[in-house]
């Protein structure tokens, strides 16, 4: 029994740590594939993989509500909309619009330089690990006394910050996000009306009477 345990230990630790690495690799690979593919529907497919794996990374970062929101809003909503747009606009010859090779090389060069710049700054800056506070709540199931991110997020959108305001002496209230929340709501309403106005069917002439 002990032998089996120790023999399979690497395998299980691979599953344990490897799942997050799988999401990391999937995100990177799919993002690169979005750039490289020429067919716009394939781009949409790779974008789905990229954004879905990002949702997986959110789960790994203990942001379970955000991960689910990413899946619902982004992958299930926005991307369906995009694919829908592709279907409405892709007609034969416009399916593939090739970038000229010169542009591709230039963009690749600039892209790699930008990536190099970002990567070096990521590696060289010490990101102050000592300033870290323990996360609000671990992902998954949290017992009653530990709360969860959903509750905390909801309260902060209502203008309360349970992790900052409550339980502190002389805490200054009002560090929440009530105003941005309201602004975002109005913004969404405006967008709803605006998008419906822009995309409405324009009838240049009245349809012939039957």
């Amino acid at each position: 029994m002990e032998i089996v345990k120790s023999a399979l230990e690497p395998l299980f630790s691979l599953i344990h740590a490897g799942s997050v690495w799988a999401f990391v690799l999937a995100t990177i690979g799919a993002a690169v594939a979005v750039v490289l593919s020429q067919n716009v529907v394939r781009m949409a497919f790779w974008l789905i993989i990229a954004l879905g794996s990002t949702a997986g990374l959110f789960f790994a970062l203990d942001a379970d509500f955000l991960g689910a929101a990413q899946l619902l809003v982004y992958v299930g909503g926005t991307l369906v909309l995009l694919v829908f747009g592709v279907m409405l606009t892709a007609s034969g010859p416009f399916m593939q619009m090739k970038t000229s090779p010169g542009e591709g090389v230039l963009a690749g060069f600039i892209g790699f330089s930008l990536l190099g710049l970002l990567a070096t700054s990521v590696c060289t800056v010490a990101w102050d690990p000592h300033g870290a506070v323990a996360p609000i709540a671990a992902a998954g199931y949290n017992p009653a006394e530990e709360g969860n991110t959903t509750r905390a997020l909801g309260m902060s959108l209502l203008g309360l910050r349970p992790d900052k305001d409550l339980g502190q002496e002389n805490a200054r209230p009002g560090t929440g996000y009530l105003l941005p929340f309201e602004v975002a709501s109005v913004h969404l309403l405006v967008v709803l009306v605006g998008a419906a106005y822009l995309a409405r069917a324009k009838r240049r002439q009245a349809p012939p009477a039957l």
């Binding site: 789905i48 689910a68 992958v75 909503g77 991110t149």
Partner: peptide
Amino acid sequence: LDVGLFFMLAVMSLEVI
């Protein structure tokens, strides 16, 4: 999951894609 219901609805919405 704390967000179990939300997660289920979210994942099932991917089927349409």
